[in-house]
Simulated scan of single mutants.
Amino acid sequence: MIRTDPETPDLYLTPVEDVFIRNHLGPHPRFDPDSWSLTVEGLVERPLRLDFRTFQGLPQTRFTAVHECFGNPLRPEVPTRAVTNLEWAGVPLAAVLELAGPRPEARHVWLEGADRGDFAGESGVGYLKDLPLDQAGAEVVLTHTMNGEPLRPDHGYPVRAVAPRMFGTNSVKWLTRIVLAAERPEHLFTTRLYTRVLPGERESRPAREKDVSSKLLTPRDGRHVPVGVCELAGYAWSSTEVAAVEVAVDDADWQPAELDRRGPDPSWQRFRFRYDLAPGPHRIRCRATDSAGRVQPLTGDRNAVHEITVVAG
């Protein structure tokens, strides 16, 4: 069941029909569960091929997590604001790896989807991502439901990987193959795209852990609102817990908002701020700080502070 925050109409869980869809490689694959299988190969003691019924019989877990698009890999600094909060269920990758038995020299997990197509000047390319073995084994879940229903075809049916603390690009849809390897794969979507140089660094790194970010949802951008005290609210998220959110109205100073704790799951956190709006137009901004000390930049990056305008009258 979709749960709503009791104090506002905004949804804590994003309805499946409102979840963004990003496909790199044209029409998505279509599977019949009876024909789908997942292979685990490479540096493993016991190569596997799991059919869907066997997969569903493995240990299951359920969790809620933010699902965020990193953005166009050709323009990695442009904000997208494409973010959702979803309840997932599936099999921990660790349970599958235990069955296969990683060999001592295995250092990386390659996750390969069934989609194929043309992208960024390359033809017939497949979708492939890689993660360090220790991190993938601890965090990744191979999911088959979203908000309590089977994955829809656009969202990776029948099985997709979900890396809860990472950008959506790492959550491979239509998953059919897992490879354990000693090295990272040289590939369009691993070493050539979805990389970036973080502030204060010189070397490019994969776009993995989410940035600290926040988004105003109440009131909606461009709305007319009554004059007087208005609740300004939204959600904040990061790869770790968000420690604080501030709100600024027009040219006033940043002021602390009330912020919910995150809880055990890597879901987003609601914030609220009450402000007495005078008649006329208003510019409203929010910025978050996470427990690692990262603060949203004012401008110039993909997670720059979110801004809306409203008219009180």
Results as ranks from 00 to 15, higher is better:
F63I: 06
L25H: 09
T14S: 11
R46V: 13
P206L: 10
I21C: 10
L48N: 06
G222C: 10
V141T: 11
K129G: 02
H108M: 15
N170F: 03
C286E: 02
T191S: 15
I2T: 09
Q56V: 04
V19F: 04
A136E: 00
W237H: 11
D260M: 11
S123L: 12
E41G: 12
G168S: 06
E241W: 07
A243G: 08
R103F: 06
V311L: 14
H155K: 02
E98F: 01
P79N: 08
V141Y: 01
G263K: 08
Y275N: 01
L128N: 01
E98W: 02
A181V: 07
R262G: 07
V245A: 06
T8W: 08
P266W: 03
A95N: 08
V311T: 15
E98Q: 14
E186L: 14
P164G: 00
Q296K: 02
L25V: 04
V229C: 12
L58T: 02
E201I: 02
P15L: 07
E139I: 00
V225I: 15
G113C: 08
L232I: 15
P279E: 08
E45Q: 15
P264M: 11
G113H: 05
L131S: 01
R302W: 11
A312W: 00
E209C: 04
R196N: 11
F119S: 04
R202W: 12
P279M: 10
Q296Y: 01
G200C: 10
I308M: 07
P104W: 12
L11A: 14
L99N: 07
R107T: 09
A100G: 03
L133I: 01
R81K: 11
I284D: 03
